Simulated scan of single mutants.
Amino acid sequence: MKPSPLFRLLLVACVVLASIVARAATPPPDNVNVHYKDPQNFTEAKRDVGVHLIDPAAYLKPFQAYIAQRASRILAPGQRLDIEVTDVDRAGEYEPWRGPRFNDVRIIKDIYPPRIDLDFTLYGADGKVLREGSRKLRDPAFLNHNMAGDQDSLRYEKSLIDLWLRRGTGKL
């Protein structure tokens, strides 16, 4: 007997819900510490005023968890990484000249790339500093990456983090 379309839809919904719950239940890694330095002074926070007012926790908290999860994957056993994000400017911009119907629409163009500034310290298993520095993460070609179907509102910022971490601990 062939399953009904409703049954298949329910099955897909259950799988999607299970993956969301599993992702939310993932505890933060204990070998990566990510924090924000004065998030109220971030470029993004200064832009979000009036009709564009966005609760910073709406994107900063999930972004913090994402950075920690991704960074923990590149660390060797015993290593620890501290990351202090000092500025975030998300991809896109509001263009008020488009009219009131576009007040809450972030326009994504190559002239509005994502930018993330951060400081980091990588510690070895013995607690000694292996590497530290500041990075200004930029990707002027951010629209050229294949992100078809990705509806995550932080996809461009997450891609910046992935590009940085992909280099490995030796080239952070």
Score class of each variant (00 low, 15 high):
L118R: 11
F120T: 07
V34Y: 02
Q40W: 02
L137C: 10
A22N: 11
V49G: 07
D89K: 09
G133W: 05
R70G: 10
K37I: 02
I83N: 09
R138A: 09
P56E: 08
Q79I: 01
E93A: 15
I83C: 09
A68D: 03
D139Q: 05
F102H: 15
S134D: 04
L60H: 05
Y59C: 09
V129C: 06
R23N: 04
E132W: 00
P56G: 10
I54E: 13
A22V: 06
Q79M: 03
S72I: 01
V34F: 04
P77C: 06
Y112G: 09
F102P: 12
A45L: 00
G92I: 01
N31D: 11
V88D: 03
A68V: 01
I83V: 11
D89L: 12
S72L: 00
R73F: 00
N31Q: 00
R23Y: 07
T86W: 00
N103L: 11
N33S: 11
L81P: 05
V32K: 02
A57D: 15
D30N: 07
L81F: 04
Y36Q: 09
D139I: 00
V129G: 07
G99F: 13
A22H: 04
N31H: 06
R80F: 01
D87T: 03
A125H: 07
I107R: 13
P62Y: 06
P113C: 05
V129F: 04
T86S: 08
D117Q: 13
G78I: 00
R106D: 12
V32L: 05
D48S: 09
L118S: 11
Q40P: 01
I111T: 13
I74E: 04
D48Q: 15
P140K: 10
A125W: 01
